[in-house]
Each structure stands twice: as structure tokens, then as C-alpha cells.
Amino acid sequence: MSEDIAALVRQLAAEDRDERRAATDRLVALGAPAVEHLLPLLTGEDGPGRSAAEACVQRLGTAAIEPLRKVRAEGPGRLRPAALRMLASVGGGDALSPADKAAVERLVQIKLLDETPGDLPSDRWVAVPGAEVKDIVRALELHDARPVTTAMGVSAALHHENALDHRSADGTTSTEYRVFITPEFDGWRLVYGADYLNDNWAQVIEKLSTHCREAHFYEVDEYHGAQVWWVMENGQDKRGHRTYGDPEWVGEPLEFERDLMQEAAEEEGEGEDAGEGGELYGSDETGGYAEGVRDPEEAASWISIQPSTVEVLDRVGHGWLAVTSPEVGHGRFRGALDI
């Protein structure tokens, strides 16, 4: 049997995709005994064989947990890191042994001592000025907030499973999320959650602005060509723009927008005086500010902070990772997080 499994594992690196698929299906059908043969591929360089081996373990799911735990406990040592990563991928934190959980926690605490967060993602985020973590947690009714590095928070809230269906004891089903609250940057904290914000952004900023006075939402959706930025104060809309909104604009232009409109109008006037070429220049420059600023990152640069610049801003504290339900802990979310 072992020789047959070894042959199938070698087939995972075949050039022909159909061969790789056939080997994957047969290895998955073998169940838990295949795991120890797949792990060596997971220690090598990226390539078809490693990707196929990861896919096999993922498809095995909970059947892979005990063989992976055995490697963590008994070795060989060179396979232990891959076993830990795959345990988190297929079973989440709940699949880790108490010793592994403690080791991860110690590593996080060490990393927090000298963390240097890089720039943050700028596709979808919420910005809150002057709020403590406890205020954000209370406003959004979050639970089990834990200190995390910025890399870990971004990894958990954006790059791995960050939403799951939960069935309560009373039989009702809800979707629960992981939410990352960043360190404070120049007096602002940002909130991330890929599925959380996609599903709930309007309610999120309403709650935050009600409890924390002010909250902003920003989104740049390059795939759909959509841009959104929204400002709420004390639970009320102050100013907002949505590419496909109806209406597209909400509220009156903010002061920075009025200044840009005025500058653009003056440039347009100078362009008209300059003749045909000037008229074209004036038209190009003023078109984007005819009704206000559409670019979320530009708006953020004026009224809050840009995620792409936090590396050079003054930072206070560290990030926090929380969940939206007291019945759903961090351990149910799958994924091997960056630290």
C-alpha cells in the first residue's frame, strides 16, 4: 500500500493536469493514511506538486487532523512546521494542541515587542478618529478581542476564512465574522473584515458614528469599476459618494471639496482664456470635481488617513482581532495566519 501511495504522490508533480487530478482523487479516497506521504511535498518549493499536495490535505479535511497531530507530537522534526500549517488550514485554531496554541501565543507576544507594520490594504476599510479599542468593540458588539500583529490581523480578516455560518442552540442560523482593528495611526484606527464590511458596511459606520461620534467607509472595487466613500457623524449621513448609487451623491460637498472645485473653476477660466488647447486642459482638470471628489483614497488623504501611508505615520499600540458572536471563538475559523 505504501508503495502505491508513494507512486501517487510522485504523480502529483506530473506535467499533465489530468494525471495530477487523477492522483489527487485517488489519494483523497485513501483517507488519513495518505497524509504522512503528502507532508514531505509541503516542505519543498512552490510548484504543482506542493499545490496538489495541499489540495489533497484540504479535501481530506477533518480526516487529516489526527495524522497531522501525530506528526506534531512525534515528528519527524522537518515535517512539523508543515503539519502545523495544515492543521490550521483544515481545522482552524481548534485543531491545534494546547502546546501548539501556547507556542503561537508566545510568538505573537514576542513579535508585538518590535513590530513594524507595513502599509495596509486599501480596497475596503473603515476609519474612526479618536476612538479607543474598547469603544469600537462595544459599538460593534464584538467579542473575544485579542492582541495581534498587523500581519496576523490582515491575514485573518482579509486573506483567510473570515465568515462562517453558525447554528445557535435555538436552531437559528447566522453568519459570523472575524474583524481586525488596527493600531492607532495619527489618531485614527482602521477596521477591516473582507466579508464583514462587504455585507454590513452601512450598519457598521452607523453604529460607530453613534458611539464614537464619527466614522468613515472607503471602498475601491477595481473589478467592478466602483468607488465609495461615506462619512457619518452621530449616526447621520454627512457626505457620501457611490459610483452606482441612487443617488450617486449624499450631503453637501465638504470644505476640501469646495476648495478643489474653486481651484478647478479658476483653472478652467484660465484655460478658456488661453484658447483651444487651454479649453481642453480646463475641461480635463475640472471634470472630476464638478460635483465633488470621487476617488476614495484622495478623499481619505484630506479627511482621515490613507492605508497606503500608515508606515510613515505615528503609531500607538497594537492591533486587535475580534469575532462577532460570543458563541463563535477564533478557533473555528480556518487558515494558517501570518504572524
Rank of each mutant, 00 (worst) to 15 (best):
A139I: 06
V250F: 04
K134R: 14
G317H: 08
A215S: 02
G49Q: 12
L260C: 10
R178P: 11
V126F: 04
E252W: 00
T309R: 14
A151R: 14
S325R: 07
F333C: 12
L142T: 04
E36T: 10
Y244A: 06
D314T: 15
D135I: 00
D170M: 10
F185W: 10
G93A: 06
T24C: 12
A13W: 02
A34F: 03
L112G: 04
L38A: 02
L158T: 06
A52H: 07
T182C: 03
G331S: 03
D246T: 13
N234P: 07
P98L: 08
G282P: 05
R10M: 14
A194D: 14
A300N: 15
A53P: 12
W320H: 14
D273G: 05
V154M: 10
V316S: 12
E298C: 00
D4Y: 04
A169Y: 15
D284W: 09
H330W: 09
A336R: 11
E219K: 15
S209A: 03
V35M: 08
E54H: 06
E279D: 06
G271E: 07
A14W: 11
S89P: 02
V90H: 12
L60S: 03
A139G: 10
E255N: 02
T116V: 11
Y281F: 13
P48N: 06
V231K: 08
G77P: 01
E266A: 05
P253T: 09
L30K: 00
E270A: 14
D273R: 10
R80Y: 06
D338R: 14
R59H: 04
R167L: 15
Q11R: 09
L260Q: 11
V108K: 05
D199L: 00
E248T: 13
H216A: 02
R78H: 15
K134W: 00
L113A: 10
L208F: 03
R239F: 03
H143W: 09
A322F: 01
V179G: 07
A23M: 08
T116Y: 10
V104H: 12
M152K: 15
N234G: 03
Y281K: 13
